[in-house]
Design a protein around this nucleic acid. Sequence first.
DNA 1: TTGACATGCAGGTATTTACCTGCATATTAT
DNA 2: ATAATATGCAGGTAAATACCTGCATGTCAA
Lengths: 106, 106
Amino acid sequence: MDADKVFKALGDPTRRRLLDLLCEQNGQTLSQLCENLDMARQSATQHLDLLEAANLVSTVKRGREKLHFINPVPLHEVYERWVRKFERQRLSLLHDLKQELEGEDQ
Amino acid sequence: MDADKVFKALGDPTRRRLLDLLCEQNGQTLSQLCENLDMARQSATQHLDLLEAANLVSTVKRGREKLHFINPVPLHEVYERWVRKFERQRLSLLHDLKQELEGEDQ
DNA sequence: TTGACATGCAGGTATTTACCTGCATATTAT
DNA sequence: ATAATATGCAGGTAAATACCTGCATGTCAA
C-alpha cells in the first residue's frame, strides 16, 4: 500500500465526494458519477484515475460503460498504521487530564 | 472542525513527518523539528502554519522559542465522521465474501 | 448501418503549492 | 553592550494540480 497516494487522493474534496457517492451506491458508471459533480467529465476521470492509483477504487468495463467500485481496504490500513498511533496519544492526554482533575479535588 | 483543512494538511509527507516527530516528543521547538527535516527553516514554518490552521498543532511562545504541541482531536473527528462509514462497508464486504465462500463449499 | 451514447486521449491554462533567499526583529548569554 | 540564537516576514520561482476544450474511438439500438 502506498500511504502517500492514499493521503494525496483524500486531500481533494472532489475525490472525497466521489468516494461518498460510491459509498451510497457502489458500481456507478462515469456518467452517473458526473451527474453529481458540476465539472467536465474529463476532469472527473482524472480524479477517478488518482483514486484508482491509490487503490481506493476499482473499475470494470461493461460494454461501453465503466463501472466504479469502492475499495475500503487502503483506508483501513492507513488508519491502522498511522492514525491509531495518534489515537493512543489522544487517550493518554485524556487520561492525564483526568488525573489532573482528580488531583485538584483533593 | 474544517475537515478539508485536516485532509489537505495530511496530504503532504513533510507534514505527516512533523506530526510523527511531535508524537515521539511533544512540545518541540521549530529548530528542533528542523533538525529532522532537510529543508530550510522557513519552509518548515509554512508546513507548521498549515498544521496549526487545521488545528492539528498548537503552539506556545516561551521566550524566543516557539513550542509545538500535537492535537490529535481533529484526527479523531475525521475518523469518526468520515472514515468509519467506509469501515462499515469494509466489514460488510468481508461478510459478503464469507457468505460467498460458504456458499461455494456446498 | 447509422445515429446516439459512453468513454478515451491529447493538449492548453490558471491557480496552488512547496520550496528558496534575504533581511528584520526579538530574546538570551557572555 | 554585544554577539549568538530563535524566529518572523516578504518576496520570488519551479513544479504540481485542477480545471478546461476539441477530437477520436468503441458500443449499443433503431
